[in-house]
């Protein structure tokens, strides 16, 4: 255990350390964020458990294999996977010190994320038009809640990413903005992982 020093604002060791003083404060924040992701894992785990338990209860409404249209879902999957990769490229640019590259790749990531959300929303609208609503059956309640919660996470991530790009434009790459980029890319990878399981358990197992 490397002690992080004994400070209210952890890690600041006095004036002389200047900027470096923020260094391990940022490490603490990154650890806090990781723990938050663990709680988010459990949140999704609970939604998955509910979906799995209720997914056969269609109550006379449409079933998964009648409802899901795979081309759109496959497109969403590859888009999100690619955006996870591009958010990684953004971090690489940041570590090289290239602000332009960093913001550029973040923009690419955000555009991919937005198109993912666009596809998902149009998928939802189409389902509701066909009469498959959240109030139709337990299966659809579980489906909309699980997939919708993931979509909500992605949307929040998008807003956050825009806010971060503004901060990067204003302040450049500092220890604080660096931590923020690291954290959001972690968040983005995490959402991709959750999607893999949505894709597998909800869609693939639904249509097979």
């Amino acid at each position: 255990m490397a002690n992080q020093g004994n400070h209210a604002v952890a890690g600041a060791h006095g004036h002389d350390h200047g900027h470096g003083g923020h260094h391990d404060l940022e490490a603490l924040r990154q650890m806090g964020f990781w723990l938050f992701l663990i709680t988010d894992c459990i949140l999704f785990g609970t939604l998955f458990a509910t979906y799995i338990v209720l997914h056969n209860n269609t109550a006379g409404g449409p079933t998964a294999s009648e409802l899901f249209e795979m081309p759109g879902v496959i497109a969403e999957t590859f888009i999100l996977l690619t955006s996870s990769f591009t958010s990684g490229l953004a971090v690489l640019c940041m570590n090289r010190g290239s602000r332009k590259g960093l913001i550029g790749w973040l923009i690419v990531t955000a555009i991919l994320g937005a198109s993912f959300i666009g596809l998902e929303v149009s998928e939802f609208i189409k389902m509701v038009d066909e009469g498959a609503k959240i109030s139709t059956s337990a299966f659809l309640s579980g489906f909309f809640t699980l997939v919708g919660t993931h979509g909500l996470h992605v949307s929040v991530g998008l807003c956050w990413m825009v806010a971060l790009m503004i901060q990067l434009g204003k302040r450049g790459i500092t220890s604080v903005t660096k931590r923020k980029v690291n954290v959001i890319s972690l968040y983005w990878h995490f959402l991709d992982v959750v999607w893999i399981f949505v894709f597998t358990i909800v869609y693939m197992m639904g249509v097979m």
Partner: peptide
């Protein structure tokens, strides 16, 4: 209809 008596 997560926990209702109807709708599955």
């Amino acid at each position: 209809h997560f926990f209702t008596l109807d709708g599955g």
